[in-house]
Amino acid sequence: MDKEELKKRIFELVEKSVGKKKLKSSDIQKIISADTGVARDYVKSALRNLVDDGTLIYTYFGGSFVEIPSKE
């Protein structure tokens, strides 16, 4: 799968979970890898790209999660 497509899938997953369940990095890796058949390491590297460019951020309240940064 194309990396940009993978990044899109990851972002959509995080977006869909807002307000329902906070996702851990490992949750995202497991879910996307299972859904797409893409190796976990590749999902992990796409996730890293998303965090590196600030599209997603890590949060840490009661565990570490990956979330969409608030707009403030």
Binding site: S25, V51, D52, I57, Y58, T59, Y60, F61, S64
Partner: peptide, 16 residues
């Protein structure tokens, strides 16, 4: 109060 959000770009740790 505990923050929980701030950090440096790309990292999820090192800042509390």
């Amino acid at each position: 109060k505990h923050g929980g959000i701030v950090g440096i770009r790309g990292y999820g740790s090192g800042i509390i």
